[in-house]
């Protein structure tokens, strides 16, 4: 039982990270039908940025954090303006190929420009285990869960309560209607790209001490986030979160109870199973096709 709770905490802490990255995925898809295969690299680049600012330049944590988010936002802005805007009329496949290209470019660009080595990033919180009866867990996991939950709740409130958030929802519902309501759809899409990058940047800061900083970490995170979005349900933000948690818990428990050898493949198998049984995702809404 104690073991179970420890795994649960570890799994949730992992899953909520995947969830944040997956939320960005879903936002992009809803507002602009963009599938970003470079999502993982949008996490990887801020990780390196954080290392550059905080460790190399020795800028204190909080200014580094703010600058990293700023950098992420600019990256998202350029991504939309220079690439996506031109590619959108070409259809989904064109975007899939181009973002695969982008992911490779950023990944190997970072490898050449900086290092193929794994860089370590200091833990943000104490990792000194806390003992609660039989249960031993790391405060880092708890902090991650709490802080990321707060971020998600704030994001949720922004989308539900603010004017800009409502405009985003309107664009997601129907671009035509949103235009008729006088919403500048172009600006909203740009905004969502910036928001997505900032979310990814936030995830990067939390992920850096756990996964370490490496040029190819983006593949790992990007695929997991994408799988999370599909497993949870692509057409809803909470779907991304549910999917992220499912992935995090599934891989943690599979590694502990089934086999460590297939840990990463297990998530893929889970994906195929979900697509076969409930293709719209766990909490997704079925879309009538025509």
């Amino acid at each position: 039982m104690a073991n179970f709770i420890q795994l649960l905490i570890g799994g949730v802490s992992m899953g909520i990270l995947y969830g944040v990255v997956a939320i960005g995925f879903v936002l992009l898809w809803q507002t602009s039908q963009t599938i970003n295969f470079g999502q993982g690299e949008l996490v990887m680049v801020p990780m390196f940025l954080m290392v550059a600012l905080h460790i190399v330049l020795k800028i204190p944590f909080w200014p580094s954090f703010v600058l990293t988010l700023l950098g992420s936002g600019i990256m998202g802005y350029l991504f939309e303006r220079l690439m996506i805007r031109k590619l959108l009329p070409g259809g989904v496949l064109v975007i899939v190929i181009a973002t695969l290209g982008l992911s490779g470019f950023l990944r190997y660009g970072m490898q050449i420009a900086w290092t193929p080595q794994t860089l370590f990033f200091p833990h943000l919180f104490s990792t000194k285990p806390i003992e609660l009866g039989d249960i031993i867990f790391s405060p880092e996991d708890i902090w991650n869960i709490v802080l990321i939950s707060v971020i998600i709740i704030v994001l949720h409130l922004c989308i539900k309560r603010t004017k800009l958030g409502m405009a985003m929802q309107a664009v997601a519902q129907s671009r035509e209607t949103a235009e008729l309501m006088g919403i500048n759809v172009r600006h909203i899409i740009t905004l969502v790209f910036v928001l997505n990058s900032v979310l990814a940047g936030t995830a990067a800061v939390f992920a850096a001490p756990i996964f370490f900083v490496r040029y190819d970490i983006g593949i790992f995170l990007g695929v997991k986030a994408f799988v999370a979005a599909i497993i949870g349900g692509f057409n809803q933000i909470r779907g991304a979160l549910v999917g992220g948690l499912t992935v995090g818990l599934a891989e943690t428990f599979a590694a502990a109870y089934i086999t460590t050898a297939y840990r990463d493949a297990f998530v893929m198998i889970l994906l195929l199973v979900v697509l076969l049984i409930k293709p719209e995702g766990i909490v997704g809404i079925k879309e009538e096709a025509y």
């Binding site: 064109v94 290209g101 660009g109 050449i112």
Partner: peptide
């Protein structure tokens, strides 16, 4: 080097799509 040509090809992929 492998990484260098992967960068070049990734870039070409984007440029071809654009």
């Amino acid at each position: 080097a492998e990484a260098a040509y992967l960068i070049v090809y990734s870039l070409i992929l984007i440029l071809v799509m654009l």
